[in-house]
Computed example of a mutant assay.
Amino acid sequence: MNRLLTLLFALGLLAGPTFGLTADNPSDPAPAEYTFRFVAGDDMFYIPWNGNGEELDRLLACIAQNKAAITEGSVPVLVDGYCTSQPSEAENLALAKTRSNRVKTEMILRGGLTEECFTTKNHADKGNFVTVRLVIPATPSEAELAARRAAEKAEAERLEAAKRAEEERLAAERAAAEERRRAEEEARRAAEEAAAAAAAPAAEEPEESECCAMGLDLRANLLRWATLTPDLGLEWHISDRWSLGVGGSWTSWSWNNKQRRYALWEVAPEVRYYMGKARRGYLGLMFKTGAFNYKFSETGRQGDLLGGGLTGGYILPLGKRLSLDFSLGLGYLNADYEKYTVIDGVRVRHGSETRDWWGPVHAGITLKWNLF
């Protein structure tokens, strides 16, 4: 027993200078590195021996101050175990590992740490002890804080400027894309309008040739033909809007042993102006002259007529060369005639009369044939 106490005392004297390097005055702040001594050849952690208790108190106080940072991983806990009292390196490493675990157990049980908080290394040199180091970031000075804040502000301003520049670039690209889209749309509309304009004359050519193309038309008023009055006329298109025409009718019928009679001739020149894009409607001016002999009762009437008026109508195409002309004329007619009776086949005059007429002077459903 005396030999054991003597050995322990000697080891304490040898360890004293080394321990003084890591254990500061109790009033000083806890150091970042802590050293725990072990008896050579023994793996037990004797806390009250050789200042281990005071060192452990400082370590636990430091852990308490930095526990949140330690558990988050921002303050690593480095544990290094050392052993040189065994005959082989493997045995030294095994004993160093056991000693490291002894110290870590105290930090787990009394400091509330976990195995994930430690980084452990074991060594077969230097002596018989375990060191614990906490890598605590140094508290920055006011100048360093100011420099850091200035750098963070400059970085924030740089990022904001880069963001504004990117937004301006995207806005410029969108504006350019919108401008290109409008230009393409305008070009497309212009192309469509040009194509429509180029196609329009071709589409209107049949209408011009059917309705009022320059040339000569042969006309026949079907209403006159329906009353057994042959009617024919010509119309000359002197331009794409104006035309000159003339129509004539003639008939002579008698029945009931010449007691009844229907005879007529008329000549009606006319000038027309065609309107509209298709030139199907028109307005015109007509002059009419002729003679008649009507006897539908005991008294007959024979004389001359003269007059004219305004005409208007609409052309309905039936094909490339045929069309129907629906027309109506309003104006004035004067009829100067004699009344007569027929006695033994001889006309006997019974006076004369003159009549004036204001109203319809022409009506027609005329078939037109474009000759050339």
Results as ranks from 00 to 15, higher is better:
Leu95Ser: 10
Glu115Gly: 02
Ala162Phe: 04
Ala187Asp: 12
Leu145Met: 00
Ala190Tyr: 05
Ala177Ser: 07
Ala183Ile: 13
Ala175Phe: 14
Glu178His: 07
Glu178Val: 05
Asp80Lys: 10
Lys126Leu: 11
His123Cys: 05
Ala161Thr: 03
Arg188Tyr: 09
Thr105Ser: 08
Val79Met: 07
Glu106Arg: 15
Arg188Val: 05
Ala162Ile: 00
Thr84Lys: 13
Phe129Trp: 04
Lys121Asn: 12
Ala175Pro: 10
Lys126Pro: 00
Leu170Val: 15
Ser100Arg: 01
Val79Tyr: 02
Gly127Ser: 04
Thr119Ile: 11
Lys97Cys: 08
Leu145Asn: 05
Glu89Phe: 12
Cys117Phe: 06
Arg99Pro: 14
Pro137Ala: 10
Cys83Gly: 06
Ser85Asn: 07
Glu179Ser: 10
Glu89Gly: 09
Ala162Leu: 01
Thr84Ala: 05
Lys126Trp: 07
Leu134Phe: 04
Ser74Asn: 04
Val135Leu: 13
Thr114Pro: 01
Ala90Gln: 15
Arg110Ile: 15
Ala138Asn: 02
His123Asp: 02
Arg158Tyr: 03
Ser88Trp: 15
Gly112Gln: 05
Thr98Cys: 01
Ser88Leu: 13
Ala124Asn: 08
Glu168Ile: 11
Glu157His: 13
Glu160Asn: 09
Ala146Cys: 00
Ala156Phe: 08
Arg180Tyr: 08
Ala90Trp: 11
Glu167Cys: 04
Leu159Ile: 03
Val77Ala: 04
Thr114Val: 07
Glu116Trp: 08
Arg189Ser: 06
Pro87Phe: 15
Ser100Phe: 01
Ala161Cys: 06
Ala165Pro: 12
Tyr82Ile: 14
Arg133Lys: 10
Arg110Ala: 14
Glu178Ile: 08
Thr105Leu: 04
Ala165Tyr: 06
Leu95Glu: 02
Thr114Arg: 14
Glu115Cys: 00
Glu186Asp: 12
Leu170Met: 09
Val75Leu: 03
Lys104Leu: 08
Lys104Gly: 05
Lys97Asn: 12
Cys83Asn: 07
Ile136Thr: 00
Thr98Asp: 05
Lys121Tyr: 12
Leu78Lys: 07
Ala146Gln: 13
Leu109Asp: 12
Ala187Ser: 02
Val75Met: 03
Asn128Arg: 01
Ala176Val: 11
Val132Tyr: 00
Glu142Thr: 03
Val130Lys: 00
Glu186Asn: 12
Pro137Tyr: 04
Thr84Val: 14
Ala175Ser: 11
Glu179His: 08
Ala143Phe: 02
Glu155Tyr: 10
Ser74Thr: 07
Glu157Gln: 14
Asn92Thr: 06
Thr114Tyr: 03
Arg99Val: 07
Arg180Ala: 13
Val79Trp: 02
Ser74Asp: 09
Glu185Phe: 15
Asp125Pro: 00
Asn92Lys: 13
Ala143Met: 02
Gly111Cys: 10
Cys83Pro: 06
Thr119Cys: 06
Ala161Pro: 13
